[in-house]
Amino acid sequence: MDLYAEEILDHYKHPRHFGHLDDPSLVYHDRNPLCGDEITLELKIEDGKVADVAFTGHGCAISRAAASMMSEEIVGKSLDELKGWDKESIMDLLGIEVGPVRIKCALLPLKAMKAAVWGLAEDE
């Protein structure tokens, strides 16, 4: 089944960068109340670049795989570059077609990352 490609399931079952950082520079918590997906993203910033990243939370396979894949990808990227990330950046990483309902799951990690690098305040 396309949505649950081998790579997606692999990231779901063995998420990369899952856990906490010792001394994060940025922490952002976000959730998708509609489906209950939740993520806390921690970023370690050095010289304007992501030195390390970690995430915790719970959610469906799509949101967790997206968080895992995104975390792998953003290490070493500059904050300016990450500010320019959009929906397509995540879709390219996932490499699957995501329908209009599940897109919110796929984009939750991006939403948290963008809010963190732009320095937005958390809603709650």
């Binding site: 949505l3 469906c60 396979a61």
Partner: peptide
């Protein structure tokens, strides 16, 4: 084992 969204998506298939 699975989030409700994943249950529904697999069943839809």
């Amino acid at each position: 084992a699975a989030h409700p969204h994943d249950i529904a998506a697999v069943l839809d298939n």
